[in-house]
Every structure is written in C-alpha cells, then in structure tokens.
Simulated assay, not measured.
Amino acid sequence: MASSSRLPKHNWTKEEEEGLIESLMELVNAGGLRSDNETFRLGYLNQLARMMAFKIPGSNVHASTIDSRIKLLKRMFHSIADMRGPTCSGFRWNDEQKCIVAEKEVFDNWVKSHPAAKGLLNKSFPHYDELSYVFGKDRATGGRVESSADVRSNDSAGYESFAADFAPNTDFQPMYRSRIEHVA
C-alpha cells in the first residue's frame, strides 16, 4: 500500500531528462559537490531541483523525483559500461543508434547474472557519453582496476623524506581501569 506522503509518479519528458543531464554535467564542472570518491555530496539533489526549475520553468521536478531518475540512469549507464568493457565479449556499441547490440542468446545469458541489464538490448541510450563524464569515475572498472598486489602506494620512490621537528606524545591515559575485586 502506497504512503500518502509520496509524490505522484513523474513521467519524464525528453526536455526534462536533457535538462537533468546538462545540470549534472554543470555540477561536475563547477566542483565542490563531489566527494573524494567522485560521488555527489549531500545537498546536490536540491541544487539540481533548483537548476531544473530555472532551466525548465513550469517543470515540477522535486529532489526525490530527481534522485529516482539518477538512480535509474546510473544503473543503466553502469550496465552498458560493463557490457562495453574489455572483459566482456559478444557485445557491440552502435554509436549511430546509441545502443548495445548483441545476439539475443548472448544478451539473455548476460542478464541471468546481471539483472540490471534487462531491457537494454537494442534500446537507445542517447546520453551515454555525457553520463560517462558524470558517473564514469565513481567506481573502478576495466583496465583501471588494481589488485592489492598492483598498488604501489607504499613505494617511496619519487618522494623526498622530511624530518619531523617534534616528538609525538605517546603518553596515553588508559581508557578504562581494571577493577578486579578479591573475594575473601
């Protein structure tokens, strides 16, 4: 049973979706609303709602509606990116139609282990390039993935050493006191 506090389902127009994609790209360009892991910080949905209201007067798109649409777009984008990735064979990208192309059997087998990809075969996804700019770095994929053996973050080559001019205070107070009671 639906809660009465929920907004009615929003049917996105092409203009609204294009405005959302454009606004997302502007947020990425502006900086300041992304965390170190390339995901958006709190408050970005309200900012997007304001941007959408400015771009498309009369559009009644709320932050929760935007959140729902972004989750859908992100899920579709990552599914397509996985199918286009170097470790996946049998899929092609039709740049003219902006869709994934594959034999039906290959696609159906893929969907068994990747249910988020359901319905994406031959389905146009015109904003793939823009969304790769927005979502492309929020998770490691393909050739950029490193195992713990590949990571060289502890390699000191190329770094100059420095002398610490202070002695660290290592005199810590105990966090708890042992209370052993002796029973006579």
Results as ranks from 00 to 15, higher is better:
residue 34 R to V: 07
residue 131 L to M: 04
residue 35 S to A: 14
residue 103 E to T: 08
residue 99 C to E: 03
residue 38 E to C: 15
residue 76 M to S: 14
residue 88 C to S: 14
residue 147 S to K: 12
residue 150 D to I: 03
residue 127 H to T: 03
residue 121 L to H: 11
residue 166 F to A: 09
residue 80 I to C: 02
residue 103 E to K: 15
residue 12 W to P: 01
residue 2 A to M: 10
residue 15 E to T: 15
residue 171 D to P: 02
residue 17 E to S: 07
residue 124 S to T: 14
residue 62 H to N: 05
residue 118 K to C: 05
residue 26 E to C: 00
residue 87 T to M: 02
residue 146 E to Q: 13
residue 76 M to Q: 10
residue 73 L to T: 04
residue 35 S to N: 13
residue 29 N to V: 11
residue 71 K to T: 13
residue 4 S to L: 14
residue 1 M to K: 11
residue 95 D to W: 09
residue 47 Q to D: 04
residue 5 S to P: 00
residue 74 K to G: 05
residue 98 K to S: 02
residue 88 C to A: 11
residue 95 D to F: 10
residue 149 A to G: 07
residue 23 S to F: 12
residue 107 F to V: 10
residue 24 L to K: 10
residue 73 L to I: 10
residue 70 I to E: 00
residue 145 V to Y: 06
residue 85 G to W: 03
residue 79 S to D: 02
residue 87 T to W: 01
residue 149 A to E: 14
residue 6 R to S: 11
residue 4 S to G: 04
residue 183 V to K: 05
residue 154 N to Q: 10
residue 64 S to F: 06
residue 100 I to Y: 01
residue 106 V to S: 08
residue 102 A to H: 06
residue 109 N to E: 15
residue 46 N to Y: 08
residue 63 A to Q: 14
residue 184 A to P: 10
residue 183 V to R: 06
residue 25 M to Y: 04
residue 134 V to G: 00
residue 89 S to E: 11
residue 95 D to N: 14
residue 28 V to Y: 03
residue 148 S to G: 01
residue 23 S to D: 09
residue 152 R to A: 08
residue 41 R to D: 04
residue 103 E to G: 13
residue 49 A to N: 01
residue 41 R to Q: 15
residue 5 S to I: 13
residue 179 R to H: 03
residue 115 P to D: 04
residue 166 F to S: 09
residue 81 A to V: 05
residue 63 A to W: 06
residue 80 I to Y: 03
residue 1 M to C: 08
residue 6 R to Q: 13
residue 70 I to L: 14
residue 72 L to S: 13
residue 140 A to T: 09
residue 4 S to Q: 09
residue 174 P to H: 02
residue 80 I to N: 01
residue 133 Y to L: 08
residue 45 L to Y: 15
residue 25 M to E: 15
residue 16 E to V: 02
residue 124 S to L: 01
residue 131 L to P: 01
residue 37 N to T: 15
residue 24 L to N: 05
residue 177 R to D: 01
residue 25 M to C: 15
residue 53 A to M: 07
residue 136 G to Q: 01
residue 49 A to W: 00
residue 17 E to Y: 01
residue 51 M to C: 07
residue 184 A to W: 06
residue 174 P to E: 04
residue 147 S to G: 13
residue 160 E to R: 12
residue 72 L to P: 00
residue 127 H to M: 05
residue 35 S to W: 08
residue 153 S to K: 10
residue 82 D to N: 12
residue 59 S to M: 06
residue 47 Q to S: 11
residue 23 S to E: 06
residue 124 S to Y: 00
residue 93 W to T: 05
residue 65 T to E: 12
residue 123 K to S: 10
residue 92 R to F: 13
residue 17 E to P: 06
residue 79 S to N: 07
residue 93 W to D: 01
residue 167 A to C: 05
residue 154 N to E: 07
residue 90 G to N: 08
residue 97 Q to N: 12
residue 25 M to N: 15
residue 107 F to Y: 15
residue 33 L to T: 13
residue 77 F to S: 03
residue 57 P to F: 04
residue 44 Y to R: 09
residue 92 R to C: 07
residue 106 V to L: 03
residue 176 Y to T: 12
